[in-house]
Computed example of a mutant assay.
Amino acid sequence: MSTEEVRLQDRMNMRMNLQFPVQESIEMVACPVTQRVIIISPFPRGIHEVVRDLSDGCFDVLVFHHLEQGLRNALSADLLIFDLTSYREEEGAAMLHSLQHQETGGIPSLLLVKESLFGLIDTAQIQQELLVWPARPQEIVYHAQRIIRSGAGNRAASSRLEAGTSPAIYKDLWIDKKKMSVFRSGVKIELTKTEYDLLVKLLDSEGAVLSRESLLEEVWGTTFMGGSNVVDVHVKSLRKKLGDRASDPVYIATVRGVGYRLAD
């Protein structure tokens, strides 16, 4: 190849690189668990950033145009979002007032409002969380995660863990029974099978006290281990991995002389 041909080839390569820049490979990470959000909005086009950010934040998002449709499906959600941004001030205020008396089955809710409407609201009279929209990028994800975490303890016991359901939630823990895995904030907590079985037994009890003897029978398949403290040892290990403390329990409380239960 002549010198002139080499120069011509180099120029062609430069043009190709300018037209089609090399893309850096981005590792795609699948969401280990998801939470479900229902959005009720008469004009969803105006809040497409909400749907996009929540979807990117590992939320399954369902959008309903009509209030009745959204509420019929509310019990399947972890959070309800009511979009009031498309209403005029008077209409939005009336809608806001009606939502204060709306039954949601214990599902926490978030209201999206325009800044102009927010200035007319007496926040002391509002039971739900409010967010002025548009907001900063990813702010909707932060508020959704926070509201779901704070409302988890107030949900019905059946929403904590039910036989055959997966994933299940307890406070900020997600339990995937199909994969026998536990997650917090999307990060897997590495548990042994025995530690996992102990946690599930405590969750299944829905706050009732489980004696050491019953745990021995349920988890180890025996009722007598000759005074062994095997249960206490494994509970201590489970607590350590969960970041829990016996003196100030978040997940597992000790009932002195009896056994263990879920913490309040």
Rank of each mutant, 00 (worst) to 15 (best):
R7Q: 15
E49K: 08
H143L: 11
Q100G: 11
N17I: 15
H143W: 06
V200H: 00
K236A: 15
R88H: 05
H48I: 12
P32G: 02
F82K: 06
V113C: 05
L120C: 02
I107C: 07
G106L: 07
H101I: 06
V255M: 07
G164C: 07
V230F: 08
R11F: 12
T104V: 06
L80N: 04
N229H: 09
F43N: 14
S228K: 09
D244G: 09
L131Y: 00
V235W: 08
E4D: 12
A263C: 04
E139H: 06
G257A: 12
W174Y: 10
A124V: 09
G207I: 04
P21F: 14
G227R: 13
Y170F: 14
K178I: 13
D172H: 12
A253Y: 04
V209L: 03
D78A: 05
K193D: 04
D53C: 04
L238C: 01
S166N: 05
V113G: 06
E27R: 10
S109G: 04
F82S: 12
W220S: 03
I175N: 02
S159I: 03
L161V: 00
Q145R: 13
P44L: 03
A152D: 10
S2W: 12
K114S: 10
R72S: 15
E115T: 01
G70C: 04
S214Q: 14
D232S: 13
I40L: 00
R239E: 07
S150M: 10
A93H: 04
G164H: 05
L242F: 03
E103Q: 11
S247H: 14
V63K: 09
E218K: 11
K114C: 11
P167K: 01
E91W: 00
P21H: 07
